[in-house]
């Protein structure tokens, strides 16, 4: 899988990524790890004060979710157990993800690793990381 920054800064890097993704989807021999779509799906956004990551991971006991921040890399890992199949039952549709998962996001340099909190509600893990004080915009008064 390609490393990619989820916080676009450079337009050319973005074009590059787009081109790679298009190539990947038309490639008759895709990567052994499949396309970049993984579980849980991630939505990422930011404000001048914080970075917010939403991981769509339904049906997981929040106590078993591992959220780690090491050297600016945020890792979300865990396991989702398949629904048990009762005796003499048939599975007609089987689309939901089951098994171990891990996703890694590289965070921008200005986040504060000590100001991170995570909440799990309605199957969505919300990780909220504040940016460092010194990185926040400040108004300078003119003497």
């Amino acid at each position: 899988m390609y490393y990619r920054s989820l916080f676009p800064r450079d337009l050319f890097a973005e074009f590059d990524r787009l081109q790679r993704e298009m190539q990947q989807s038309f490639d008759p021999h895709p990567s052994i790890r499949g396309l970049t779509r993984g579980f849980p799906a991630l939505n990422i956004g930011g404000t001048p004060k914080a970075v917010d990551i939403y991981a769509f991971a339904p049906g997981i006991d929040p106590a078993t979710l591992e959220v780690q921040l090491v050297k600016g890399m945020l890792t979300i890992a865990g396991e989702r157990k398949p629904e048990p199949l009762p005796e003499k039952a048939t599975r007609h549709i089987d689309e939901r993800f089951a098994g171990r998962f891990q996703r890694v996001v590289s965070l921008p340099d200005d986040v504060d690793p000590n100001a991170i909190d995570a909440k799990y509600r309605d199957g969505v893990l919300h990780v909220h990381i504040l940016r460092k004080q010194e990185a926040q915009p400040r108004r300078i008064t003119i003497q």
Binding site: F56, A57, P58, E83, A89, I93, D94, F97, D122, G123
Partner: peptide
Amino acid sequence: PPTDVIEDIDGITLYADLPGVP
């Protein structure tokens, strides 16, 4: 939404992933 459908003798059980829906 991704869905699982399981049928047993008495009926059908459907699971659907709807993360973020209250």
